[in-house]
Design a protein around this nucleic acid. Structure first.
Length: 497
RNA sequence: GCCCCGUUAGCUCAUCUGGUAGAGCGCCGGACUUUUAAUCCGGUGGGGCGGGUUCGAGUCCCGCACGGGGCACCA
């Protein structure tokens, strides 16, 4: 092959995007030839834009400084030519500043070169601060360097980028175009930092447990499988960190947490991504009531970290309602009075619901009632307590309620955000719970807790009474940033293809 | 996996019953020494992919891909 087919088309037959890219490539070559300082390897000593703006708030309208000269680096997002003067908007990670260029300061050659730059190009500028006649703090350009050429055009400078597919698949474009997106991910970072800071300050140590596991556990979910070639065996991606963290409690660490990704091979939705971020913490000598109070504190700290000012009131104590009360309040049915699938199904049928309640067993039906009828109504932070034992194979039996366990799920914004137990520490009971799960599996249930003998042996070593919590970070961020889709708070959400 | 809806220029959006697809921004050329969605003049660029019906398809039909919403599943 001659290679001719790989060469750019002649200008006469370029169209659309190809034409725009060709223009920018040509400009890049011109810059390389005419400006020896184009594309330096670094641009040290630049001042963040927000700091610069804060430093000069005292400037009066029309006032110009003559020193000191500042350096600023960023991306050109707007350009307004005005004959022998021109204005640019420059954006860095901290904000936006207007640049003022004058031909009598820069000279004809540099001025023309500056004006030939495209929206999206990265530049470093040197200059002094002024406040324009229209009152905007600006940097007058005394000199500049082109740091990088954008070969592809940026999204619309005014309307930004709204196409959700492009926003998620090309998140860099979303971040360039939408300040709101940049803010959300900065807030996410602050929330994660606040959760860690709280736990660190309360005697928890952060640990890391295996993501690749020979046996998955700690939640009801289908796992991803992968292959270890050297060991010639299949491995699972973790669906939860629970069982390993409890072994660390047995080991005497007493307060541990892990913040990281879990992987569940389930469908996608506005609140489900196949890989998602969870923090789980466990502490010895505490029960699920202690953990409810701790979650209130963790979430309050996270809310403070982003100056949350929305509709939800995270101040303690949050509303508490039992599993059966919550369902009864919505439907009039006390599921504990109908511990039989047919009987409960008949009671549900009388309700004339516009949603279908699914399940083969009474506890599956009851769980679906909670999920479909109650959960969407739980906007303000709420604990739902005391779940059926069949739904919770790792939770300790309720101290006073037969057939229930000491478990709560926390809801906010109509969505589950956390789950906790008084942990089951009796190895014999745990063994029997696993056996019950295996019987469910034999009946065709795809999601169950596989028998984990290593974990049971750990319990046999003696585990202190403990409480543990799993808090969904993505959903917490959704609630605290007011987003209604998990894709808005995950930088690169799972997409088909 | 199933159901419904969507896909028009680099971006944001128009386009009545099938009859030559428009605009703004951007980009190219020109004017302008305080603009800020700068302005003014001229120019440039397009129907997701593959079939079908028709004299003629962005428009009607079928398939595919991708996206959104819902269901199933799940935290």
């Amino acid at each position: 092959m001659s290679g001719r087919e790989d060469e750019p088309h002649p200008p006469s037959i370029r169209h659309g995007l190809d034409e725009l890219i060709a223009e920018r490539r040509a400009k890049r070559e011109r810059l390389r030839e005419t400006d020896k300082t184009a594309f330096p390897y670094a641009f040290p000593g630049s001042t963040p834009i927000d700091e610069l703006l804060a430093e000069y708030t005292h400037l009066q309208v029309g006032e110009e400084t003559t020193e000191p000269q500042h350096r600023v680096a960023g991306r050109i997002v707007a350009r307004r030519g005005a004959g022998k003067a021109a204005f640019f908007d420059l954006v860095d990670r901290t904000g936006k500043i207007q640049l003022h260029a004058r031909v009598d300061v820069l000279g004809r050659k540099d001025f023309d070169e500056l004006l030939s730059l495209d929206l999206g190009d990265l530049v470093g500028v040197f200059g002094v601060m002024l406040r324009s006649r229209h009152g905007e703090l600006s940097l007058r350009i005394d000199d500049f360097q082109v740091l990088a050429k954008a070969l592809r055009p940026p999204p619309d400078k005014h309307h930004g980028l709204t196409d959700v597919e492009t926003r998620y698949r090309r998140r860099e474009l979303d971040l360039i175009a939408n300040e709101d997106t940049r803010r959300v991910f900065a807030q996410r970072a602050r929330i994660v930092a606040a959760v860690r800071a709280y736990l660190d300050a309360h005697g928890f140590i952060e640990v890391e447990t295996p993501i690749l596991q020979a046996l998955y556990g700690g939640a009801m979910a289908r796992p991803f499988t992968t292959r270890h070639n050297a060991l010639e065996r299949d491995l699972y991606m973790r669906i939860a960190t629970e069982l390993y963290l409890k072994r660390l409690i047995v080991g005497g660490l007493e307060r541990v947490y892990e913040l990281g990704k879990d992987f569940r091979n389930e469908g996608l939705s506005h609140k489900h991504n196949p890989e998602f971020t969870m923090v789980e913490w466990y502490e010895a000598y505490a029960d699920y009531n202690d953990e409810a109070a701790r979650l209130e504190e963790v979430v309050a700290a996270a809310a403070r970290s982003v100056d949350y000012a929305g509709e939800l009131d995270f101040s303690a104590p949050w509303r508490r309602v039992t599993f059966s009360e919550a369902i009864a309040q919505r439907t009039g049915i006390d599921v504990l009075d109908h511990r039989d699938a047919e009987e409960l199904r008949a009671a549900i049928a009388k309700l004339d619901l516009d949603v279908h309640i699914n399940g083969d067993t009474w506890f599956q039906l009851a769980d679906d009632m909670l999920g479909k009828l109650v959960e969407p109504t739980l906007q303000q932070p709420t604990f739902v307590l005391d779940y059926p034992v069949e739904l919770s194979p790792l939770a300790r039996a309720h101290r006073s309620q037969e057939g229930l366990v000491e478990r709560w799920e926390a809801f906010a914004g109509g969505m589950e955000i956390a789950n906790a137990f008084s942990e089951l520490i009796d190895p014999d009971v745990q063994r029997e719970r696993f056996a019950a799960q295996e019987r469910l599996s034999a009946l065709g249930e795809e999601e169950f807790q596989p028998y984990d003998d290593t974990f049971v042996q750990a319990l046999e070593q003696g585990m202190p009474p403990s409480g543990g919590v799993g808090l969904g970070i993505d959903r917490l961020v959704m609630v605290l940033t007011g987003r209604d889709s998990i894709r808005e708070v995950v930088l690169f959400p799972a997409m088909r293809g």
